Simulated scan of single mutants.
Amino acid sequence: MDKTKILLADDDPIIRMDIREMLEERGYRVAGAARNGEEAVELAARLKPDLVLLDVKMPRMSGLKAARLIRRIYDPAIVLVTAYSERDTVREAGEADVSAYLVKPVSELNLFPAIEIALSQQSRIDGLKKALASLERSAEERRTVEKAKGLLMQAHALNEEEAYRFMRGASMDSRLSLGKFAEAVLQEREERMPDKAGNG
């Protein structure tokens, strides 16, 4: 099984080293380590880690701003690390769509639960997105089938059931899904329309 890829970002080299050691001892793969928010965004875009661990206060770009920019590129789990449990920071972390929030000092006791929560939450979000995309594809396919069925009813004086039976049989004969066959019917209709207009 592939190891979970993690990108960590902290301006303190000792903290970066300590966190890297903790992660690698637990079996995670540290794909990269950034010294500031800008580097974190660049590395996240290039390496596409499963989880990004961001210190809030970093030079050049804060962890909060980096989190927002990373979210525009793709959707990893994001854990924010801060020395302060301030209400404003917690609120901003929520607005930045952060998966989990961790208060320093970072130790195995608080690091790994935060990572597991973040990965689990991201997995659920990814699952919901896939389910939604699948529903949207199904709805689009149904609309395409209905359009094609309507064309066949009109062109061949068929009732709805006859048109559907014809489409199902033709899709099986051509080894196409019903949706793909419906697309072919509509495409053929579009290709014929200019000819009819020109001949009319």
Rank of each mutant, 00 (worst) to 15 (best):
M167I: 03
S171H: 03
L80Y: 03
M58H: 00
R124H: 10
G94Y: 03
V81R: 07
K104A: 00
A155L: 15
E95I: 09
V106G: 02
V90C: 06
V106A: 05
S174A: 12
E92H: 03
L132H: 05
V185C: 08
L102H: 06
S134T: 14
V103N: 07
E161N: 14
K180E: 13
L132K: 11
I73E: 14
K129V: 06
D55A: 02
K196S: 12
I117D: 05
A170D: 09
E116C: 07
S107W: 00
S107A: 09
E140R: 13
A197P: 06
F166H: 12
D88I: 10
D195S: 14
M193S: 13
M153T: 04
R137H: 10
E161R: 15
K130I: 10
M193R: 15
S120A: 14
D55I: 00
S62W: 00
R87W: 09
L132F: 07
A114Q: 03
A133T: 09
G63N: 01
R142D: 12
D55K: 00
R91H: 11
L152P: 02
A66H: 03
G150Q: 05
L178E: 06
E160Y: 08
S138E: 15
E86V: 04
P59V: 01
A96I: 05
L152S: 09
F112N: 01
V98Y: 00
M167T: 07
E146V: 13
